[in-house]
């Protein structure tokens, strides 16, 4: 790829207003074949170390820890259309916030989160030395989580989203980028996001990636998270992925305190048929 092509690629990648990375089962890459289906389970641990307001830390050491399981499934009619569903389950969520007298108050949440259903429409291209796809994915968020906790990991509101993605892979390397947005019922703010994943096919059954996510919302929240990921194809049916992301920038909304400065670790196993 020469410089001109790269600049064009970058422009196309960033142009669609802004972004939304939309990780999809299975491991963002399968099944590509007609009639293919699969499911995956991801275990995710999120730790945020400070309570912030805007860019400022208002309570250092007031942490937030969220442990979730994500059950996700996919069905591919043919290479151009698939249906995915993602259901999170909050195993345990705990956060420390400021009480009315400035004291530390602990809040908790658990249970089923909100269901996300997407219809990724894909246009694949196959070249002699490269393959890839363009993706347009309308998505809906269906509120399933309970709303009676002080702390809600999932907002429990309806939402609609659209993401646009491009990915390409050669024998040695892999690049994927996506952009998109979500609009939710009031009072939840609209969210935008952008992702860029760079991968190296270290072995024929292993890919090492560096993944970056940008996200922001209408209330001036802005996060930039990035980190390494490892994909391993154990066999045709079984696929494993682990990833770690660090918040390099975490500006929370300036209207109220929220947690930032975090790390997210996830490990997953997926099965395709």
């Amino acid at each position: 790829m020469n410089v001109r092509k790269f600049v064009c690629w970058l422009a196309v990648s960033v142009a669609p207003v802004a972004p939304n990375w939309a990780d999809q089962p299975i491991m963002n890459m399968m099944p590509r074949w007609d009639g293919g289906y699969g499911f995956q389970v991801l275990a995710e641990q999120l730790h945020r170390s400070d309570l912030k307001q805007g860019d400022d830390v208002v309570a250092r050491g007031f942490t937030e820890d969220v442990t979730q399981l994500h059950l996700q499934g996919v069905y591919t009619w043919d290479r151009s259309i698939r249906l995915t569903a993602k259901l999170p389950y909050v195993v345990d969520a705990r956060r420390e916030v400021l009480g009315p007298l400035g004291q530390k108050v602990v809040q908790r949440d658990e249970g089923i989160g909100d269901l996300t259903v997407a219809l990724p429409l894909k246009k694949y291209f196959n070249l002699s030395e490269r393959s890839g796809s363009w993706t347009l994915a309308p998505q809906i968020r269906i509120p399933l989580g309970k709303e009676n906790d002080e702390f809600e990991v999932w907002d429990g509101v309806w939402g609609g989203g659209l993401s646009f993605g491009y990915e390409t892979e050669t024998y040695d390397w892999f690049i994927a980028t996506s952009a998109g947005f979500w609009i939710f019922e009031q009072p939840e703010p609209a969210e935008w996001s952008f992702s860029l994943d760079l991968g190296w096919n270290a072995r024929e059954d292993m890919q090492i990636l560096w993944e970056s996510d940008l996200s922001w919302d209408d209330e001036s929240k802005f996060f930039l998270s990035a980190g390494p990921a490892l994909y391993w194809r154990w066999n045709d049916k079984t696929h494993i992925r682990i990833e770690w992301k660090h918040d390099f920038v975490s500006r929370v909304t300036s209207s109220r305190p929220d947690h930032g400065n975090g790390d997210r670790f996830s490990a997953g196993i997926g099965f395709v048929f």
């Binding site: 074949w33 196959n126 002699s128 059954d205």
Partner: peptide, 17 residues
């Protein structure tokens, strides 16, 4: 001769069909 073959994971769907 098949265009788009770039990784061994390509074989999964080919084997299935």
């Amino acid at each position: 001769f098949t265009k788009g073959l770039i990784c061994s994971s390509c074989a999964i769907g080919i084997r299935i069909h």
